[in-house]
């Protein structure tokens, strides 16, 4: 095995991808060749400083592509990926962020007086569901953030898409 052969194989040596008998030959050459040994050190250092792929990049690309297509990301995330699978938590799916923001603002504008009026009409002991809904709706510190999502205390942000839509329908029907 000459210097050219050994240098070609140094990345695989760094990766641990060489068959034992090939690795033995490479190591034997390196033990007696200062130039190749220096090159090995360079390759090892490069390998040790290999930059990571940013976490969440896969999801970001998929979101951008599907936003372009107007479709949703297919299931099976990561099934074909062999490297980084550190996906960042995805935002709630089902409604675009602008719709959630608009829905929340509408709910605040219409829902608060409606809920107050309903609570006034409610029996002395309201059922649990009514109380939970009122508590969620009337919780302060709800603000529309720049991207249309809700910031601050949980309040409406804690509702699922289905709950939010149901609330809106109910509010619109009652308004």
């Amino acid at each position: 095995m000459n210097c050219q052969d050994v240098n070609d194989l140094l990345p695989e040596l760094a990766l641990g991808d060489l068959r034992p008998e090939v690795r033995r030959d490479v190591e034997r050459h390196l033990a007696g060749c200062e130039a190749c040994s220096d090159t090995r050190a360079t390759v090892e250092a490069l390998h040790a400083s290999r930059p990571d792929v940013p976490a969440g990049l896969e999801a970001r690309i998929l979101d951008a592509v599907h936003a372009e297509l107007g479709t949703d990301v297919a299931s099976g995330a990561g099934e074909a990926a062999g490297g980084v699978l550190r996906l960042e938590p995805r935002r709630r799916r089902g409604l675009p962020s602008w719709a959630l923001g608009a829905a929340a603002l509408l709910a605040l504008a219409v829902g608060t007086p409606l809920m107050v009026s309903r609570m006034a009409e409610a029996p002395t002991v309201a059922d649990d569901e009514t109380l939970v809904m009122a508590e969620r709706t009337l919780t302060p510190s709800v603000w529309a953030s720049d991207d249309g999502l809700i910031a601050g205390e949980p309040a409406l942000d804690g509702l699922s898409d289905e709950e939010l839509l149901a609330l809106l329908e109910e509010l619109e029907a009652g308004a």
């Binding site: 896969e58 690309i61 592509v65 990926a81």
Partner: peptide, 18 residues
């Protein structure tokens, strides 16, 4: 086939990034 497109992206985004 959106699933096929996603699979292509997942297969190659690391290489494309590098």
């Amino acid at each position: 086939d959106a699933h096929a497109l996603d699979t292509l992206i997942r297969r190659h985004y690391e290489l494309a990034y590098r």
